[in-house]
Computed example of a mutant assay.
Amino acid sequence: MVSLDDSVIARLEKFGHKFEIRVDPDFAMQVKQGKNIELDKLLATNQVFKDVRAGDLASPEHITKVFGSTDMKIVAYKIIKDGEVQLTTEQRKQMQEKKRAEIISFISRNAMNPQTKTPPPPIRIENAMEQAKINIDAFKSSEEQVTQIVAALRPIIPISLEKIHFAIKVPTQYAGRASSIIHKFELKKEDWLNDGSLAAEFFLPAGMKQDLLNELNSITKGEVIVKIIE
């Protein structure tokens, strides 16, 4: 269980009743984002209160009326998802900084300069976000925020979430291993030629371009033919 000192209060008011539980702030945010977290990592106690600080427990009748169950996981998840997780100012700041770093990393891996087909460096993304005065929502996932953020960055830096369209041809002796690699990405077509070699087209984020080329060159000893399709 989470220690009381490290926990915060999650609260939900519904049908005139107040319900409070003590939760780990980081795992509570993950629950808000739809992740499944074990209760012993999420909760400081297995009790539902109407006032945590006073130690007043919520009645089982009220819990059943509002949540339709007394199952602790059902109740806790409902309180967290539909209610408010009370973070301190410092906790909110730390979570926003962590989310900002996640978003910068996500954009660097998945976006590209449409003119050069190269990923933007993280420091350039960070500076552009500061210039655009981007507000980060610590309670939303990176994926939910990226599209809007990239749109706000376009007047400042050339950036797009479009993926690079690759075409490759791999000699027979390396084709099987190459096929397993490209199947990790958005495959457009895969043709096995009469001589056993592989010709394929696929899309991948710009930030993964160099890692992919390194991997393909490694397994084919440099014999892979790669073309970027405009």
Results as ranks from 00 to 15, higher is better:
4 L>Q: 15
8 V>N: 08
11 R>K: 15
16 G>F: 09
19 F>H: 07
21 I>W: 09
21 I>H: 09
22 R>M: 13
26 D>F: 09
27 F>P: 00
31 V>T: 01
31 V>L: 02
32 K>N: 05
36 N>H: 12
37 I>R: 06
42 L>D: 04
43 L>V: 03
43 L>G: 01
47 Q>E: 14
49 F>G: 03
49 F>S: 08
50 K>Q: 12
53 R>E: 13
56 D>Q: 10
63 I>L: 05
64 T>L: 11
67 F>L: 04
71 D>N: 15
76 A>H: 08
78 K>C: 10
79 I>P: 06
80 I>Q: 03
82 D>L: 14
84 E>W: 08
86 Q>S: 10
88 T>F: 05
90 E>H: 06
94 Q>G: 00
95 M>C: 00
95 M>Y: 11
98 K>E: 10
100 R>C: 00
102 E>K: 11
104 I>P: 09
106 F>K: 10
106 F>C: 06
109 R>P: 01
114 P>D: 10
117 K>E: 14
119 P>S: 11
121 P>F: 08
127 N>D: 13
128 A>Q: 08
131 Q>F: 02
135 N>R: 12
137 D>N: 15
139 F>I: 10
143 E>W: 05
143 E>H: 05
147 T>F: 11
150 V>M: 09
150 V>I: 12
153 L>N: 10
154 R>T: 14
154 R>W: 03
156 I>A: 07
158 P>G: 07
160 S>C: 04
162 E>L: 06
164 I>L: 13
164 I>K: 02
165 H>K: 11
165 H>A: 10
169 K>S: 13
173 Q>E: 14
177 R>I: 12
183 H>N: 15
186 E>T: 14
188 K>V: 15
189 K>I: 05
195 D>F: 09
198 L>V: 03
198 L>R: 03
198 L>W: 03
204 L>Y: 03
204 L>K: 06
211 D>I: 04
212 L>N: 07
215 E>D: 10
215 E>Y: 04
215 E>R: 11
216 L>I: 02
218 S>K: 14
218 S>H: 13
221 K>L: 14
223 E>D: 11
226 V>E: 05
